[in-house]
């Protein structure tokens, strides 16, 4: 079953447009949602959560239309946002007491277990928590109301490498039994190299590609060649950089002819993102 099915979502703002955004996330997997700052990640997430009105398109969660079953589906969605705080001067205990009333499937025992596992003291105020602890607290809330789809908007931004690694392990543990799915937006692509099963890449309000992580990476090649070889491939490159040793550039794997003698390697997610961003700059 699809945990999340985004179909042709479009939304225009005065200075920005989401254009025909479509992607699907199978239940029980982690999807990394990557893109540079301002590419449309948060807008897409807000569209999924019905926080912004769509110009066109549909969002289905766990097989049901979000537009028609928003309240019912929000019982099944856990949402954590890095860098945005709510009621920071309140104790976690107070916040939990308020939040839990909204969820039909709230389970106090699960909540206490997660709070213990995440080493969170309920009597602490939100403002006293580190960034990583805030994400963990949001996760504890989401999991205690039985969320099946976790939508995490930049949950690892601002975390140190140790805390990031710990969170990534938690994410992988959560999807292990195949019931919970995670959509995880970030611009820290190394996190996704570690834990994502699928990658959806957005640039300038459009989905560039969405697919299985390794296939996604292998669909591109990073070329490394001498400057005089550049002309052979220049018009097929997504973008390129020239340095003192020659050039490096990104190309669609299908567009590359291995017999041309240019060195080619599978790029990292970061390299794909960077070269796409450079392509956009060329048009500005």
């Amino acid at each position: 079953m699809l945990a999340l099915d985004v179909r042709n979502v479009s939304k225009s703002f005065p200075n920005f447009q989401l254009r025909n955004v479509s992607f699907q996330l199978e239940q029980g997997y982690i999807m990394g949602f990557i893109g540079a700052n301002g590419a449309g990640k948060t807008t897409t997430i807000k569209s999924i959560l019905n926080m912004t009105r769509l110009d066109s398109g549909e969002v289905h969660i766990l097989g049901k239309s979000m537009a028609a079953h928003e309240i019912e589906l929000k019982q099944e969605i856990g949402y954590a946002m890095g860098g945005v705080d709510f009621y920071t001067r309140s104790k976690m205990k107070t916040l939990t007491d308020v939040v839990k009333r909204f969820y039909a499937n709230w389970d106090d025992k699960t909540y206490r277990n997660y709070m213990r596992a995440f080493k969170l003291d309920e009597n602490k105020k939100i403002a006293e928590l580190s960034t990583g602890m805030k994400v963990k607290y949001n996760l504890a809330i989401a999991l205690s109301h039985g969320a099946k789809l976790l939508i995490l908007d930049e949950p690892t931004s601002g975390l140190d490498p140790v805390a990031r690694d710990e969170l990534l392990d938690i994410f992988q543990g959560l999807v292990a039994d195949g019931e919970i799915s995670i959509l995880f937006s970030t611009h820290i692509t190394s996190d996704l190299e570690k834990c994502a099963d699928f990658i959806t890449f957005i640039a300038n309000g459009q989905i560039i590609r969405s697919g299985e992580k390794e296939e996604f990476k292998e669909s591109y090649l990073l070329l490394n060649g001498a400057e005089n070889q550049l002309n052979q491939v220049k018009d097929r490159l997504i973008s390129y950089k020239i340095n003192s040793f020659g050039f490096t550039g990104l190309i669609q794997a299908d567009d590359f002819d291995p017999s041309c003698g240019i060195k080619a390697a599978t790029p990292s997610l970061e390299e794909i993102m960077v070269y796409f961003a450079k392509k956009e700059d060329q048009y500005v």
Binding site: L49, M51, E70, I71, K74, Y79, V84, F102, Y103
Partner: peptide, 14 residues
Amino acid sequence: AQNDLMFTSMMPVT
């Protein structure tokens, strides 16, 4: 200041 609008919108409420 406490982002109440966002906080409330995330919950299952109309």
